[in-house]
Amino acid sequence: MITCGLDIGAGSTKGVLLEDGRTLRATALVPTRGNPNAAVRAVLERMVEEENLLPGEIEYVCTTGFGRYGYLERDLQVSDITASARGAVFLFPGTRHIVDVGTQSSRAIGATETGRVTRFKMNEKCAAGAGRFIERCSKYLQVPIEEMGPKALTAAQPKMISSVCAVLAETEIINNVAEGVPIQDMLMGIFLSLAQRTQSLMRYVGVQPEVTLVGGLVHNPGMVRALENTTGLNVNHSPTAHHAAAIGSALLGYQRLQKLRAAPAVGG
């Protein structure tokens, strides 16, 4: 039984195929580029081709992310908080606390051993607490995103960003550039500032080990280090955790499909 999870995010669209709710068969990721439908098509085509599947072999599609309602062929949609928690516990079964720094917003999520969300808190307003801020810093400092993390690890005296507003934080960074602060110190300062804002969300939820980082920043060793230094905890992470929300939705799709098969729905 193959279920598909699609995480249609603002920055990228991720897809996974899950077999019998246990085995990860395929993953795919494409930039959303403002066209979620095209991104979903590309993700599905890539996974179907990779696994040599017939279209009908995907028995259930569950979507998540900001574009979750946009894919009309879905069977079910769930919020990315619900999905990320399920996915994180699937990847790291000891997970009780999930940190998701997404493009548009960051979230701290408490979860049970089954991945059920117990409490959550998200930054609601300011981009300074979200991944978009890192993208903007990459642009201002002219350091490609994939190089930001490794460079930050070489910082000797991280230069923290004190502003809580993304626009003012960018001004602060420009001032640091003018003052000749080494680039690696600025980069680590950016990650530490983001980690501190994330920590305030985590405190609201109640920090409980194990902590798992999900979303695009799992590829960024600078952010992982900043989060570990700030919280004093080991932070689970892996490249696959970028797909945690897609995995979670595929899992919930599998649960739902099993229920439907056990007791077929009646009427509309």
Partner: peptide
């Protein structure tokens, strides 16, 4: 209401899915 929707959905799902 996107933020409110997301929070409400998650809240409901945390009760609906065990």
């Amino acid at each position: 209401y996107e933020q409110s929707r997301l929070q409400l959905e998650t809240f409901v799902e945390s009760i609906l899915f065990d």
